[in-house]
Simulated scan of single mutants.
Amino acid sequence: MAKAIPRGGVHQSRTLKYAHAGALTAGDVIVANGQVLVAVGDSAAGAVNTFVFRGPVEFPKQSALAIAPGEVCYWVADTHVNKTASANTKVGICTEAAAAADTVVLVELGENK
């Protein structure tokens, strides 16, 4: 499973508690109820964990893809972020330019409305 890194402090990130069906480690990215969530800690299957649902998060990025600030980003199941809406889950918007050679992108994670 791909890992993401929350980059916001206590004042920038918003969290929720959720019990995921599978075991998780910190940084694991899941989609629950149409929302992209990032695990804060480790948890056993079915145990409650804390997840970031809003704030700056560094995600792995599709290779050979440049993403400009303000562009909408989407999560491709268990792997990375790209700019393709079809069959993917909206993550948020890019907040720092990511060149095609970059392996990560900083996204303002936000809940889907």
Rank of each mutant, 00 (worst) to 15 (best):
M1T: 13
A2N: 10
A2D: 04
K3Q: 11
A4M: 14
I5C: 09
P6L: 08
P6F: 04
P6N: 03
P6R: 13
R7G: 01
G8Y: 03
G8C: 05
G8A: 07
G9H: 07
G9E: 06
V10H: 13
V10Y: 13
Q12M: 06
Q12G: 11
Q12V: 12
R14K: 15
R14W: 11
T15I: 15
T15A: 09
K17G: 05
K17R: 15
K17A: 13
A19E: 11
H20M: 09
H20F: 15
A21V: 13
G22F: 08
A23S: 15
L24H: 09
T25Q: 14
T25F: 03
A26Y: 02
A26W: 04
A26M: 06
G27Q: 11
G27M: 09
G27D: 03
G27K: 05
G27V: 01
D28P: 03
V29T: 13
V29R: 08
I30D: 01
I30A: 01
I30S: 00
V31D: 00
A32F: 10
N33E: 07
N33Y: 04
G34P: 10
Q35T: 02
V36A: 03
L37G: 09
L37I: 09
V38H: 08
A39W: 05
A39I: 09
A39S: 15
V40C: 12
G41D: 11
G41M: 03
D42E: 15
D42Y: 05
S43G: 09
A44H: 04
G46E: 13
G46L: 12
V48S: 13
V48M: 13
N49S: 11
N49C: 14
T50H: 06
T50V: 10
F51N: 07
F53W: 14
F53D: 14
R54G: 12
G55W: 03
G55I: 01
G55C: 01
V57C: 09
E58A: 13
F59C: 07
F59R: 06
F59Y: 11
P60F: 08
P60A: 13
P60V: 06
K61M: 10
S63L: 11
S63K: 10
A66Y: 09
P69D: 10
V72P: 00
C73P: 02
Y74Q: 01
Y74M: 01
W75N: 04
W75R: 08
V76Y: 10
V76L: 05
A77R: 06
H80K: 13
H80F: 15
H80C: 15
N82I: 01
N82Q: 02
T84V: 15
T84G: 03
A85E: 14
S86D: 08
A87K: 07
A87M: 01
N88A: 01
T89G: 02
V91S: 01
V91T: 12
V91C: 12
I93C: 05
I93H: 06
I93Q: 08
T95V: 15
E96T: 08
E96G: 01
E96A: 11
A98D: 01
A98H: 04
A98G: 12
A99Y: 00
A99T: 10
A101W: 07
T103E: 08
T103I: 08
V104L: 06
V105G: 02
L106H: 03
L106G: 03
L106T: 05
E108W: 14
E108F: 07
L109W: 09
E111C: 10
N112W: 11
N112D: 14
